[in-house]
Each structure stands twice: as structure tokens, then as C-alpha cells.
Design a protein around this nucleic acid. Structure first.
Lengths: 197, 197, 197, 197
DNA sequence: GATGAATGAGTTTTCATTCAT
DNA sequence: CATGAATGAAAACTCATTCAT
């Protein structure tokens, strides 16, 4: 039992050691040698834990995602109004605190777009479902509190696609100057439709 | 006298020859050797026309984009209602006719996300501005025809981000089952708000 | 006849156009393309005049050498004392005026050391003989003028080897700080032995 | 445990394997492939030990230099008269025993002349300083033994430049027929001035 | 289990030379 | 005569993966 825990921990250590490497050089430009060195292990040992480089990145993203979700929850718990909660929810795309994860998310999305595989597809799907449910609960609570009209539920989901899209556009063009404002405005428009006056 | 070659045409030919290669194997998996073979020229000749592989992909995307825009215009001209025009405008993301360009667009976006450079940034920005103006004109016409309320203009622009985002989600997750319906529904919601009854 | 002259002139033009290229990038790093462009002719045309790159360098060195010798003669004619004439003779190795030719001489010597051929050998031999005779004449004149003892002739020739050697050392090590002083001192030592008091 | 390899020894082996290759084909005409084959290793392995071809040549020159210096010392120890010691010291430039090193020295000098770098400059400087000190000691001993006049020290150093220069001339021209005689004569002239009668 | 030395297939890139016009 | 487009051989270099210890 203890050994299994150790093995899991070592996988995490290797993956986490890769984080700075990715941030500095980009996923496509790092080598197994660098990963091994960053984790203070031999090159061959990397293969004891991962089948290939993509798996390491995958492990890293999973770890960071979990971490991020904990922080997200903590941040959300500090807020009371539903509007603020929703804004905080999507602040991932612009807030300085999430800069590193955002960079890795960008690179991970690039991989997903150019060479998706079953595992990544399932992982991304699970993530999406998790966030959708999470958002669902926030909205439900707002309805229960008499903050929002019941039909709010139907309107809010498009915001996922919008934020994702406007983020991609902000990264790949010069046309989106103030991302936070763009996202917040969109949320405000929706809430003006959804809130009970 | 020396052989006179239309350098621009030859660049186009090489780039177009690369298209099937990219569709089959993906940008990251093709070599200059393959590109040369596909264009029926020597490896060295490729370098007479392009500094590196990325430039070829760039050239190809530019050519296909121009082609696509001509077809887009033709399709739009056949339609009369603004609603249908807008739907047609964003049908790029699901219509079978644009499948190939969509695949290349995906891969190009992947490059943009993982290693953007000045040229790509400018190109993508120009594209975005072009499409925004185009859409602007469609809406303006709808307003002029008394089809739409004047404030329609302000509402429609978020649709770019939405379609982009929902497309990415449809490709990277299993959660988006019917992309066309998702996009059309969103457009319908907006038009129900914008149309004069 | 006129055509032959033209052809010779064109050869000279091509070679001279190569000079700046060599000074900037080094003989090993310039291409036929660059040479053709510098001479404002086509790449194929270069081959009408030269069999290969080495021949161009060769032609250039011959031209510059002739030019240099004219200037050398002019400089020497301005001087009266034999000692000053000898110093001026070897000032090639340090004087700012000859900097460019010195750089090309360096690179030419490098070629000679790594891959000498019959033609280069003959050319270098002729150069050496020319300079030896020239120096001979200077010394003879000094003897005729009763400036030098008759046996001076036997002593002076080692100076060729010395200057050549100390120049190579000044270029390939940090140990030779003041090349002019080193050369002049050596000449002074010899003249103190050779001059009639 | 992993295979333990004496990395330094392996570097030496690779470099030494390159020696015959250089002697046969010249530094500029050998490839990494050839070097790998000569050392009975894979191409990639070469890069585990050296960053590029120049480094290998460098390593080889350092090894051969050390070897040479040991032999030089042995030869010198067998001699008693200072004159003979000095002649032996510079016999490197003509003696058959040092033919191979001389060829490599030639090619190394060619590299130094055409594309010197910090490391080569420092190496060559160190070599020069070493030999200068060595010669210094030989002369000092001659003075202590009452063989030479004390001022001998000042005269002898020019011999380095002379031998270097006359060697270069013997290689790049046909004008130097008997190199050994030229060098020995020069040394004799100096000793006639320096020796106590 | 862990290691890291060894590998060689695979890729990019260069450029002197040719030759059809 | 002049050209410059086309070439492909040849070279450097990379790196994921293997495997003997």
C-alpha cells in the first residue's frame, strides 16, 4: 500500500517538475532529458512512470486542475451575490493569479486541437461536465435565494462558449484589448435579463 | 534569357500541394521532403520559395481563406433574410463543404496557441477585422430593410466569440453533440431579440 | 582584342565585388549567390569567368597585391634612409592603411595552410621572390650609399621569416601586445649591426 | 546501477580516433559520421561528448600537445650543450618524428587564422607562454653553467617568431628548400653572438 | 527498481553546379 | 553570351527510446 502511494507521489513530482520547463520553453520544446533532470531522476526512470511525454503533460494538467478547483471553490465561498460568483468563476481567463495555469491550458488546448486522443477527449469532457454542474449549482442557489428568475438556467450556459472563444481570440489576435471587461460585460448583460428586480 | 517563372504562382502551387499532406498527417507530422515530393520539385527548390515550413502553412491558409471568402460571398448572395445570412455566415464551423478548411483552421489555431508570432498575429487580426466588418454590413442592411431594430448591432458581435468557443469545445470534448443546432439556436435567440415583429 | 580586355575587366570586377563580402563574412562563409549579386550578374555567369570559388579569391588576391605593391613603392620612394625604408616595407603587418589586405592575406594564408595547390604554391613563391629581390635592392642601395656594411645582405633576410611569424603569433595568441614595436625593434637590432658608424 | 564510463577517457578515445582521418582528408573534409565510425560509436554518441566538430579537433590538439611535450622533454634531457638543446627544441618544425603533429598543427593554425575564438586564443596563448618559459629555463641554465653571456636572454626570443614564420613559408611557398638548415643556421648565428669564448 | 550511456533514424538546411531558355 | 530556376547530395544535429548493469 505504501509503495503504491509512493509511486503516485513520484508521478506527481515528475509532472510538477515539468511545469516550469513548459512555462519557459513550451511543451513542444522540452525533452525527456530536461524532464528527468528537473525531477532529479534518470532518463530511463521517467519511462518507469510514464509511457511518453504527452502522459506527463496530461498528469500535470490533472494535478493543476485539481489545485485550481480548490482555489476556485475557496474564492467562490467568499462571495455572496450570484453575479459576483459567476464573474469570479470565469476570471480564470484573465486574473493574474491563474496566469501559469492559463499558459499551460493554452498549450494543452493546442495539443487537443492538433492531435486529440481518446484519453484527452474524455478528460476534457469530464472537466466541462464538472464546470457545467458547478455553474448549475451556483445558478440554482441564486434561484432558491430569489435572486434570479427560474429561466436563468437556460441562458447562462452559452457563457462557457463565449468566454472560451473570446479568450482564444484574445490570444491569437490583437483585436481583443480588454478581456476582463469583455467577459464581465457579457455576464452583466445576461444578469440584467436574469435578475429579479 | 533565363527561364521566366511566375514566382507567386509557384509559391501557391507548392502551398496547395501541401494541403492533402496536412489533412492526412497533420502539420506537425509532415516533412519538407514530403512537401517537395507532393509539389514534384526538389527539396532545395522549396527553400527557394519559403524560408521554413511554417511559411508554407501560412501561405496555404491565406490562399484557402481567400477562396473560402469568395464561396462565402456567393452563398450569402443567394440568401435574402438577414437571419439566414447570419446562419450561413457561421455555418463554416459545421457545414460539410468547409470540412477541409476547418481541419486546417484547427491546426493553424493550434500553432497560434502554442507559438504565435508577429506575422500570424497580424494575419489573424486582419481576418477577424474583415469578418467583423462583413457581419456589420449584413446587420446594417437588415436595419436598413426594417428587418432589425437599430440596436441589433450591439448584440450580435458576441456571436463571434460564442461560435469560436463552441467549435473548440465540440472538437476537444464529447459534450457538444449537435454543433449546428447549438449555433443556430444561439442565433435564433439573438434574432428573437433583434427582429422587428 | 577589345573583347578580351572586357573579359579581363569583368573578371576583375567580379573579384573586386567579392572583397567586401570576404571582409564581412570570411571566405568560408560566402556563397556563389552572394558573389553574383555583389557583381550584379547571374549566378551562372560567374562560371563563365571562374571555375570555382577559390579562383575568384585567387584573382582578388592578385589584384590587391598589385595595388598594394604600387602603394608600397610610392611610400618607399618618399623615404631616404634605408632603415626607414625597411621599416616601411614591413609596416604592412600593422599599419591601418593595409588592414583590409591584411585580413584577406590572413584568410588566404589559412587556405594555403589547410589545402595548398600547385597554383597557390607558385603564386606565393613568386610573391616571396619578388619581395626578396625588392628588399635586396633596398639593401644594395644602402651599401652603395655607404650607409651599410657589405655583409648586411646576409643578415637581413631572416627578417621576412620573423615578421611573418610574429604576425601569425599576434593573430593567434594574446601574447603579442605591440606588434609594430616588436617588428621595429627587431629591425633596429639588425641595423645596429649593419650600419657603418 | 548504470554503466560507469570514464567520460574523459572516452573523449580522448574519440579525439584520437579522429587523428588519422584528419591526416588523410584534412579537418575541413571530415564529417561527424566518419568520426563516429572511426571511434566505433554512433553519430549521436559523438554529440554526448562534444558540442561540435571544432571541439573534437581542439581536444585532439590538446592531447597530442601534451604527448609531444613529454617526448620533447625526454629528447632535451638527453642533450648537454645549450646550443643542441635549442636546436632540438625547434626541430619540431622539420623532424620526421613530429610529422603528424606538424600536419595537425598546420591545420589548427589555419582554423585559428580564419575563425579564431576565445577558447582557441587562450589555448594558443598558454602554449606560447609555456614554450617561452621552457626556453627561458634552458637559456638560464646555459648562463648558470657559464656557457652563455648573461645578455643571451634578450636575443633568443625572436627565434620563436623566426621559426614559426620560416615554417609557414616553407609550407606555402617553394622558396624554402632546406628548412632544417635555415633554422639551425639562424640558431648558430645567435649562439655565435651569445656564447662565451 | 533505477540508471544514463548509446543509438540512428529522421529532419532541416545549405549551396555549388547545371542547363534550358 | 547571360541567366537564374532547379536540384539533390551532403552535412549537422536532435532526441525518444532502449537496455546492460
Amino acid at each position: 500500500m505504501a509503495i503504491i502511494v509512493d509511486k503516485e507521489q513520484k508521478k506527481r513530482d515528475i509532472a510538477l517538475g515539468t511545469k516550469q520547463l513548459i512555462l519557459n520553453d513550451g511543451i513542444n520544446n522540452i525533452t525527456i532529458s530536461q524532464i528527468a533532470k528537473a525531477a532529479n531522476i534518470g532518463k530511463g526512470t521517467v519511462y518507469e512512470y510514464f509511457k511518453n511525454k504527452d502522459e506527463i503533460v496530461f498528469e500535470l494538467v490533472e494535478i493543476l486542475m485539481q489545485e485550481h478547483n480548490k482555489q476556485k471553490e475557496a474564492r467562490l465561498n467568499k462571495l455572496t451575490s450570484t453575479r459576483e460568483k459567476v464573474k469570479s468563476f470565469f476570471s480564470f481567463f484573465y486574473v493574474d493569479e491563474d496566469k501559469e495555469l492559463r499558459e499551460i491550458y493554452k498549450q494543452f488546448t493546442a495539443i487537443a486541437l492538433s492531435s486529440i486522443n481518446e484519453d484527452m477527449l474524455n478528460f476534457q469532457t469530464e472537466c466541462y461536465i464538472l464546470y457545467e454542474k458547478w455553474m448549475q449549482n451556483i445558478i440554482d442557489e441564486g434561484i432558491k435565494n430569489n435572486e434570479l428568475k427560474p429561466r436563468a438556467k437556460n441562458l447562462i450556459m452559452g457563457i462557457f462558449a463565449f468566454t472560451q472563444g473570446v479568450f482564444i481570440m484574445s490570444v491569437t489576435t490583437n483585436a481583443i484589448k480588454n478581456l476582463q471587461q469583455k467577459i464581465d460585460t457579457q455576464i452583466d448583460i445576461l444578469f440584467d435579463l436574469m435578475e429579479k428586480k
